[in-house]
């Protein structure tokens, strides 16, 4: 087992790198798959591991998109004038301006989204269960509505970003695929370590019985704020990359898309299995593949089918793939009776 693990991860990494060349026609879809994976994994940090089911994580995606765009533009031009011209094409970016703007924009998106989560958390983490879900949903809808009335960032028209330098559009596709892939892989490595720490054990305690966790002296609010901020950091970066990939985006349907992507990530996690490392990833792949394969055959009914999928997943398959496995094969997840003579006391996995 122990020898197989590094081989498995190396093979996986090789596959991730090779994927856009194995299926060159699906580069954009593969990049989108990474968005799903990143958003699902970060949603699970609070939803699955901490027991705080947010319906508003999309807020960080939209905010990240806007922050990255505004920072990226502002290193070269006045943002208000730029958005006023609404993609008139008179604003040219040099390669340096483009990449430097994007890099600074993504960093700003991550950091500021973490900050937003911290501030918002002070208000919302006093709410439990359904109130938290509705409160976060409300925050996300409100953010979208407010931004769509904010003329400085383009109002309801949104922002048109500069196009990727060069004429070969395939280069842009590859660039954004790898940018998403790096973010996703970093997030995975981070979470793989994060879930083994004492900190993660503490947020699990909050999920299972917050009152008990408080009675045991855990600084619950601080732990919740840190966890949500980390999640928001990665979502913000993913949103920022999406903005540059899409070139043009607008507030309600693309950035703060509460009822599309905002709810997809929850469904992905439920499909794969809440509160596990691999569940959100498997769920995201499953959901994305099903969506891409069936979407075009549904002739306008795809959104209805999506609603139905949410209902069916929630009602009949809420434990997800991993939850189902844990029920069928509990011994795979380390449940066992150990006799006393084996006092070597091996640490639990």
């Amino acid at each position: 087992m122990t020898i197989l693990r590094p081989i498995f991860y190396l093979a996986l990494l090789a596959f991730i790198i090779a994927a856009p060349f194995i299926a060159p026609d699906f580069r954009t879809q593969l990049a989108t798959l990474w968005i799903f994976i990143i958003l699902s994994m970060t949603w699970d940090m609070t939803g699955g591991q901490m027991g705080y089911n947010s319906l508003g994580n999309i807020l960080f995606y939209g905010a990240g998109m806007y922050i990255a765009a505004v920072v990226g533009i502002s290193i070269a031009y006045n943002v208000g004038e730029y958005t006023n011209a609404a993609g008139g094409g008179i604003y040219k970016f040099t390669d340096t301006q483009y990449f430097l703007g994007m890099a600074l924009g993504l960093i700003a998106a991550g950091v500021l989204c973490a900050g937003i989560a911290w501030v918002l958390g002070y208000l919302l983490f006093g709410l439990r269960g359904p109130y938290f879900a509705i409160g976060t949903l409300g925050a996300a809808i409100a953010a979208g509505e407010l931004v769509s009335n904010w003329e400085w960032v383009g109002g309801g028209q949104g922002i048109a970003l500069p196009v990727f330098p060069g004429d070969d559009y395939e280069n842009a596709k590859l660039f954004f695929y790898y940018l998403f892939a790096v973010t996703g892989v970093v997030l995975f490595i981070f979470l793989r370590w994060f879930y083994t720490t004492r900190f993660a054990a503490a947020i699990n305690a909050i999920r299972d019985d917050e009152e008990k966790a408080e009675a045991m002296g855990l600084h619950t609010l601080r732990y919740k704020l840190i966890t949500w901020s980390i999640a928001a950091f990665f979502v913000g970066i993913a949103g920022g990359i999406s903005g540059y990939q899409l070139i043009h985006f607008e507030p309600l349907e693309t950035a703060f898309q509460t009822i599309n992507l905002g709810i997809f990530m929850v469904v992905c996690v439920l499909l794969g299995g809440k509160g596990t490392l691999w569940g959100p990833i498997i769920g995201a792949i499953l959901f994305h593949v099903v969506k891409e394969v069936t979407w075009n055959y549904l002739l306008g009914w795809q959104w209805v089918a999506l609603g139905a999928l949410i209902v069916i997943t929630v009602v009949y398959f809420q434990d997800g793939l991993m939850g189902w496995l844990a029920r069928v094969k509990p011994e795979w997840f380390g449940e066992r009776v150990t006799e006393k003579p084996a006092l070597a006391g091996e640490p639990a996995e």
Partner: peptide, 29 residues
């Protein structure tokens, strides 16, 4: 009140005295 979905060792490890840890120590295994 215990954390019913975890095993006993996990229950014990969660009960580590976090008040005596710094944030950096909390981010260790």
């Amino acid at each position: 009140r215990i954390y019913g979905d975890m095993n006993c060792v996990e229950n014990m490890l969660i009960s580590m005295p976090h008040r005596k840890m710094t944030i950096r120590e909390a981010f260790t295994t």
